[in-house]
Write a protein that binds this DNA or RNA. Structure first.
Lengths: 169, 169
DNA sequence: GTAATCGTCTGTGAAACACCAACTATTTAT
DNA sequence: ATAAATAGTTGGTGTTTCACAGACGATTAC
């Protein structure tokens, strides 16, 4: 699964030169700022930030079992159940039994789910404007593209594919 | 590399057209993945992810009062106290009373604090490699630059300034 | 002097988890 | 066919991170 780690053989103490920029803390900081604003915006839609994460992941790479989803979201599978229960109760996702392995529940976005996700994303425009105010349009698109690629491992290239779907803004 | 997005002609009433890409959920997702890995790496250093966020913010824009810090981190000021207590107990920050307004505690990174932060960032290299594995070196630098600018509002442009400081890796 | 502000401390409660144990349905191995 | 492993579900426990409220001392502003 993770087959890169081949490079930079560390022959000295410093694998990297002086410019060691870690994005972790910044990621944390911005995610928090965004989440705080998202909560109030998402509440009327009956969603919480973590639901949105799940929906987003499902849109990007749907049709996975719950185990796989737990791996992607890095959450305990028992807690995934509750999360999906919420979403299924609202009919935003569907659990179908896999024909190949009937133990497995294949989780997928419903039409309603995709629509609600789009609505949520539109509603979050102002929140994003506040948090990413220092970045212009092109920079935000770049940011999205980088986050998107990082988030889905190495796959996707969904940039174009999605555009066709959520023009229902 | 990222300046394809030129095709989107119709400028309608909306400030934004159909390609509505929200980074919030991705930010959340990646921040979580990073935080999970950071915890184990940071533990031996006596730090937690949220300490690192505070230290990072303080390094970027030190010399602020706690109220201001609460605003930046968007946390309740009563909880800031505990956070700073932790860091002060480890002598990573200092609280000096402001000469102008002696009610105010000006918070600043100590030398130890800056060093510890650098150490932590170095230690987080492998965590970042895992989470941002899909991005190459240049892309990660771009990401850092974007996050950094967004995080500090509109100021800073610290990219070069910091390099000179934390080469003590 | 009185009022407002900054920081501190204490405590309460909610939410998001991780983790454990038990159970069902189903598949795979022997 | 029987046993073992796997996917999901349910219920429960405990921890951590918060937001929020109340009260206090120190300091400043009016």
């Amino acid at each position: 699964m993770f087959r890169r780690l081949g490079r930079l053989g560390h022959m000295s103490a410093q694998p990297l030169d002086s410019s060691e920029h870690r994005s972790g803390a910044l990621l944390d900081h911005l995610a928090r700022r965004m989440r705080l604003r998202s909560e109030s915006v998402l509440a009327p839609l009956g969603l919480r930030p973590r639901h949105l994460v799940a929906l987003t992941v499902l849109r990007a790479g749907g049709g996975t079992g719950q185990q796989a989803l737990a791996t992607i979201l890095e959450m305990d599978s028992t807690n995934i159940v509750g999360l999906l229960n919420d979403l299924e109760a609202k009919q935003l996702i569907e659990r179908r039994r896999s024909p190949e392995d009937r133990r497995r529940h294949v989780v997928e976005l419903t039409e309603d789910g995709a629509k609600r996700l789009s609505e949520a994303e539109c509603a979050l425009a102002s929140a994003e404007d506040e948090v990413l105010g220092a970045l212009d349009r092109t920079e935000r698109e770049t940011l999205y593209e980088l986050l998107s690629r990082a988030s889905t491992g190495t796959a996707v290239t969904c940039t174009e594919a999605i555009c066709a779907t959520d023009d229902t803004c």
